[in-house]
């Protein structure tokens, strides 16, 4: 069953100063089925992250359609959906993991993971239990749970990011280089949880530089060069 169909997606950025158009991705089409994992590879600046950001609507697509089959809203074209629809989908159905951690000030690691569930109207008690389970899974030491993540190392931040996105078990999960700066042991943990999510019918699109990692988890791999799908 198809969960996401990208049709002729193009994205250009127009910079008013100095009056310049920058083309990022062009005429990209692909289909993602339920429980499937698509990997995207390509050189830096090839337009890989742009595709994910268009699906997440952090970028406004210039052309093309992105049909997502929502559990609650039915077929939704993510490029034209209302802002409220996108916010709903981000809360309940779509997850996005970037390489960067964005945490509210004075929010501990545990509270950060809990916030994803509280946003989904989960009780504080349940959110805390699930957050602890997820933090344990990612082997974030218990001594760090009640600490503000500003002091965390790169790897610890990344694990926290993954825990925050995965704790809500989204239907569609996007991963933008989630294993960059992780050691091999943690990469294996990430691989295992991705496979577990895949087994539970979560559909995923990920950008990876680690080809070996990608071969372990992906069903299909797309190669992007100069913003265009080449294979």
């Amino acid at each position: 069953m198809e969960i996401l169909r990208i049709e002729n997606l193009s994205k250009s950025f127009y910079l008013h100063y100095p009056g310049l158009e920058i083309r990022s991705c062009h005429d990209v089409s692909m289909t993602l089925n339920k429980g499937e994992f698509i990997g995207i590879v390509g050189a830096s600046g090839a337009g890989k992250s742009t595709i994910l950001k268009c699906i997440n609507r952090s970028y406004l697509p210039s052309q093309g359609e992105l049909w997502y089959d929502s559990e609650a809203l039915g077929k939704v074209n993510l490029s034209t959906a209302t802002e409220r629809e996108i916010l709903y989908l981000r809360r309940f159905e779509i997850g996005y993991v970037s390489q960067f951690l964005n945490v509210m000030p004075r929010t501990t690691a545990k509270e950060h993971v809990m916030s994803a569930l509280i946003d989904m109207d989960c009780t504080t008690k349940q959110a805390e239990a699930d957050a602890k389970e997820m933090l344990s899974y990612f082997k974030l030491p218990e001594t760090l749970w009640d600490i503000y993540p500003v002091t965390f190392s790169g790897g610890e931040r990344l694990r926290l990011n993954l825990a925050h996105a995965m704790v809500k078990k989204p239907r569609l999960l996007m991963l933008d280089e989630p294993t960059a700066s992780l050691d091999n042991k943690t990469k294996i943990l990430v691989r295992d949880i991705l496979l577990e999510l895949k087994g539970a019918d979560t559909s995923m699109i990920g950008i990876f530089h680690d080809i070996e990692f990608m071969e372990d988890v992906c069903d299909k791999v797309f190669n992007i060069s100069d913003g265009t799908l080449v294979s």
């Binding site: 950025f13 997440n56 952090s58 406004l60």
Partner: peptide
């Protein structure tokens, strides 16, 4: 007007 991350990133 738009989603906050879109306003800031695009």
């Amino acid at each position: 007007s738009g989603l906050t991350d879109q306003i800031l990133e695009d």
